[in-house]
Design a protein around this nucleic acid. Structure first.
Ligand code: NAD
Ligand code: NAD
Lengths: 229, 229
DNA sequence: TGCTAGCTGTGAAACGCATAACAGCGTTCG
DNA sequence: CGAACGCTGTTATGCGTTTCACAGCTAGCA
């Protein structure tokens, strides 16, 4: 097979991409950014794979989804590969995100996303506590949850993070779906029941810590590292 | 095959359990607790499965790892099943956890774990900032990171959460391993490189949000919900 | 200029996990 | 009192992902 071919997979565009592949691509891109920042020009699959903690084959296979090919002698050009992955992951411009629940976790999330990830910005916060609404939090307006529908539609927000107590999470999620949200990141320790066209991701820290604690007392054997994202 | 058999899998004890199974068992147990709290006595596999957002077959298969069998007519006795899962997941008594990095996220984690999960307690915090050490935080002593080795060994802590800036995470992890930690839960957005007998779990919130944002603009098709824990 | 070395891209096999399918059994209802 | 139903435990099947293996290519070097 000649080298100037374009595999069916590639031709198919991003047709069907596994969630796992998406997560790893995001991870690769972040590592590539770091590499570019530190002045690295080229990187081989085995180097990048080591940094991402995957096998080189896995990395190369993942990269088949991206419109870029490395050189057998130099490897991948860091900035070009980063851009190609970016083109694939495709934040069309900047994507607006809402945060519901400005408590301990919510404020920490604000601090975390402040500055980094310019393409993903928290542009609205919601809470039910009168003391926390109608003011600015880290340069972002905070509204009462009852305004969610209006604000979300006006600002075209279709991604939201939920950081409210478990008891309130389902109702908040319903409200957000009503407001037109496409996908959710839920930190509350309840499994949300939502229409199938809404994408939901749970980050369940309690469960994860229990898992970690469980494997702390294993008879020494399982040494897999699992990416939770 | 008679009903009073004990499958090889069961006989083998917890020999080989997939991480995925462990996570789901933890999830089932939490749901069972809620059910017990709300006064439910019996539950069928399809009900519990719906609450956990898995298929009934999956649930029953997972329960094969636990020494308990439900009745075809009543289903599973909630409290008994909860106990059996607990016996399997096996927090021998109470398990001590350390938290490194008392910043925004660290404090939120303190608030979160306070009270709940009595078998999993944060008994020591570490930081490098003099202003944050040598005092009590939520009833838990805070030490300078240089004391980690001593304190961890003295208190027999072998599980730790890392909530320090990415730049410091690897060095902190190395210190903790040196102090005898068995498994880690890392919140910093760097992939840690550690000896293979140390179990590491990454909660990478930035990557996860990017993933969620990515699937917010899908052509409507993928409606899978993936448990990140 | 021909050869070796080492990397990439990718078809094909292997593996693990989830889903489907089935046997046993207690209850219920004809 | 028997038979049909519905649920459990378990075995078998299928699918998606990872791993293996190799062909093609490019530079470097004799
Ligand atoms: N703090 C953590 O580190 C942590 C870790 C894992 C999971 N969580 C989960 O995240 C959630 C929030 O945790 P937290 O520590 O920030 O709690 P918190 O009590 O500090 O904050 C919750 C916030 O949600 C607001 N709220 C309550 N009901 C609401 C509603 N119906 N609509 C809008 N806002 C509402 C409250 O006013 C409050 O500001 C909880 O479900 C918790 O289980 C927290
Ligand atoms: N805040 C969030 O919601 C959030 C979300 C996802 C990930 N994270 C990650 O969690 C980590 C912490 O986030 P944060 O917002 O709490 O940051 P932060 O700056 O508020 O807190 C970091 C803490 O770590 C301490 N620290 C620094 N170097 C240390 C060392 N060598 N040993 C011990 N302690 C040290 C600092 O003194 C500070 O108290 C970061 O890596 C961040 O990327 C945070």
């Amino acid at each position: 097979m000649t080298r100037k071919r374009i595999s069916k997979q590639l031709r198919a565009g991003r047709r069907t991409v596994s969630e796992l592949v998406v997560v790893r691509l995001i991870l690769y891109r972040r590592i590539l950014r770091d590499l570019a920042f530190s002045g690295t020009r080229y990187v081989f699959s085995h180097q990048l794979a080591a940094l991402a903690d995957v096998t080189p084959e896995q990395l190369r296979r993942d990269l088949m989804n991206v419109r870029y090919e490395g050189s057998p002698t130099r490897g991948y050009e860091v900035v070009v590969l980063e851009e190609c992955i970016g083109a694939f992951l495709d934040p069309p411009s900047t994507q607006a995100v809402a945060l519901v629940g400005v408590g301990n976790l919510g404020r920490a999330l604000f601090a975390y996303f402040l500055g980094r990830r310019p393409l993903l910005q928290i542009v609205a916060a919601f809470d039910i506590d009168p003391a926390k609404v109608d003011r600015m939090i880290n340069g972002c307006p905070s509204y009462h949850i009852s305004e969610a529908r209006t604000v979300m539609r006006e600002r075209g927000i279709n991604v939201a993070m939920i950081a409210v107590p478990a008891a309130a999470a389902q109702s908040v999620a319903d409200t957000l779906v009503e407001a037109g949200v496409r996908s959710l990141l839920n930190f509350a320790d309840v499994r949300l029941r939502l229409p199938p066209d809404v994408y939901v991701e749970h980050i369940d820290i309690g469960v994860t810590l229990e898992k970690v604690a469980f494997f702390a007392r294993r008879p020494a054997g399982v040494e897999r590292e699992a990416g939770s994202p």
